[in-house]
Amino acid sequence: MTTEVLKVTRSGDEGVLPATNTRVLVTEFEYSRPASVEEACSELAEHGDDARLIAGGTDLIVQMKMERLSPARLISLASVSELRGITADDGLTIGATTSVRSVARSAPVLERYTALAEACESFSTVPVMVMATIGGNIRNASPASDSAPALLAFDAVVDLVSKSGERAVALSDLFTGPGKSVIRADELVRSVRLPRCGAETGSAFVKVARVMADISKVAAAVRVVRDGDRITEARIALGSVAPTPLLAMEAAGSLRDKQVDAALLDEAGRIAASESAPITDVRSTDEYRRRIVATIVRDALESAWLRAGGKEIS
């Protein structure tokens, strides 16, 4: 690099502001841009642990600029066109490098997977939505991901591919901790699949953040399947309230085969709050988060119920 690097460190800023001049990327690495999934998998097999895949780069490049990550090689997916796009069949298949904004604006997503459209639309800012990819968001395994709760609510399955083969992992089995998942270093996220969603299904995503462009303090995505005045199936997924995006199983179970009224939804919100395990950090306190879970789960359930064709809740 010809650009001179200026180190700026201010005491007390560690971990909040970058220690480096972010005008340049100081980390040195090799770069390659395979043309196919097969080529990308070969490169991952060869370089695995020392390499990182780069798609949108909205998180990776920032982490590298802050010198929190320094991979020896970046394998760019910019030319792997087979990973991009949304296919609507019985369900929905979203290619890993499909942008968050494409997902938010996709007709089948808007029609049938409303919570996912809302989650992607609530994402950060427009240029970040244009750059960030759904696969990157999954692989990043952030507990504060907006897309993960929505995908969890739809029972998403993640297709992984490597030189040694392919496997499908339920998203609910994928995350193991903040930034951690069962995805191996030699594996690539090919796509995420959502099962069929019929007209009797309704879903909603609600996020609480300081301003819209912020990372969530709390997020909830819910999906309900309606039969008459009852919910026959429900999913409640939460973000930013546990080390991983979380399915509130007990709260969802409390809704099954019950007549829907305000008390039922209130109670599901309370149970979801008790299933959450939030921490206090720069964005919020644990107590606030737990209280907000109860409220936004209840609100999201009501929206989802109405979208599923349910009657107004008095």
Partner: peptide
């Protein structure tokens, strides 16, 4: 800001707005 948070570096790439401070030049090939 250099970390994709302020929008001062926005440019169009293939007609879409991107943040040039977090885009690898090699990726615009």
């Amino acid at each position: 800001c250099g970390i994709g948070e302020c929008g001062a570096c926005a440019v169009h790439v293939d007609g879409q707005p991107l943040l040039s401070c977090i885009v690898l030049a090699a990726d615009v090939d």
